[in-house]
Design a binder for these strands. Structure first.
Lengths: 224, 224
DNA sequence: CGGGCACTTGAGCTTTGTCAACACTCGTGG
DNA sequence: CCACGAGTGTTGACAAAGCTCAAGTGCCCG
């Protein structure tokens, strides 16, 4: 059943769903997974490499990305602690994956997971639901890239505040360059937009990596 | 198993795959589906409406779209003859759908399809594979929106020539406005880019809706 | 022939990208 | 303890891409 799976990354708030937090899929990764530690910028796998393993972030953050013909890097997803990534439709990875910070991940064989889903209806359902969430995210992302710079940045901040579930004070784990590559903007535009949002009193920037949401309503209206 | 499905649209070249052209899923839609005819701009379903049916295009074309707060419309996917759309993860539609031309679709109950997938492993596999294709498309689309106007338009033309499988002469079924909404550009930019591509001898535009690909290599290099 | 609609074209403006300079942080070594 | 340098982030001036507004063209269908 899973011979043709395309999960680029599962993830997104599954931590906040108690029913899935200990799903058999995740438990399996945790039981059979081998811990791997990477330093910043370390490559986890390359684009077009055979997709034989899947990964679950323990600490730090990773991203999936592609380098385009013009040399520009496009980040597909940020993978936060708890997120699962690396499962693909095809036999090869469609994106590469790298560590954005010091990173530790659990690595499990793809065949173990697909075998489980073949036998266990519950596991298969969980993959479906994770997969569905992934598709929704990809669709949302496609829509986001059609919007203006302030809309993209504001939406990104709200997303990160939500995913890191740290109230209104967000410690961004990635650089401005990473954010720019994710949002399809340049580092300068991201930086300017941050200060613009700060000038409008929607956010506060105590240090460059720490963002405090001062006025969520204002930020929401920036995000349109 | 499919109680939480999120197929926004399946589709994309499944017609060209003989193994799937008569899949049990599609056969079921054709057997139990009720034919519905809509005129241009007719609404098939609205965003947030309960997702109780799925649809297969018989003739004409449809699109899934969203209208943003600022009034701008964003088209998610074009649904060509043979394409299936309307199946969702959640209980409600995440996008609305409307007819772009005169349109006839087969409408089937969602429960019929999910019931089939529950019983039939083959049907379930087909849904997986269609769903996977959908995710890949959404990811490609996200990458596309990060590119320049000529890149987007050239890629769009190549895609349409491929999907309509009509050789090098493409009869575009949608207006410039629809293309603009799909590519995240304005109607003027789309129009200018078309003439620019014509000036560069990559294409020819006998009438505004008919595009002839004169030099596929040149068009490919525009698409980067 | 005339009206309406879709499409094209032009001129000016806004947004974002580019290039360059500057500021801040943090760790190293004098 | 401070000086230095590398890395990261911010800011400014200018250029380019794309958007807006407005006018014009062509086509279809009465």
């Amino acid at each position: 059943m899973l011979t043709q799976m395309t999960l680029q990354t599962l993830s997104f708030k599954q931590r906040s769903n108690p029913a899935q937090a200990n799903s058999s899929i995740e438990r399996t990764i945790e039981m059979v997974g081998v811990l791997k530690v990477l330093s910043r910028n370390g490559e986890i796998y390359a684009e077009n490499e055979p997709a034989q393993h899947i990964y679950k972030v323990v600490s730090g953050i990773a991203c999936t990305c592609r380098v385009l013909a013009n040399g520009r890097r496009q980040i597909g997803t940020f993978c936060l602690p708890g997120d699962v990534f690396g499962l693909e439709v095809r036999a090869e990875h469609g994106f590469s994956a790298e560590a954005i910070t010091e990173l530790s991940v659990l690595v499990a064989k793809r065949s173990t997971l697909t075998g489980l889903a073949d036998k266990d209806r519950g596991a298969s359902d969980q993959l479906w639901s994770l997969f569905c969430r992934e598709l929704l995210m990809a669709q949302e992302r496609a829509l986001l890239l059609g919007r203006t710079a302030p809309e993209r940045v504001a939406t990104f901040l709200l997303q990160m505040a939500d995913r890191l579930s740290c109230g209104n004070s967000v410690e961004l784990p990635m650089s401005r360059q990473d954010i720019a590559d994710y949002l399809g903007l340049t580092i300068e535009t991201v930086s300017r937009t941050f200060t613009c949002l700060e000038d409008s009193a929607a956010i506060e920037i105590p240090t460059s990596r720490r963002i405090v949401i001062r006025n969520r309503g204002a930020l929401n209206s920036w995000a349109t």
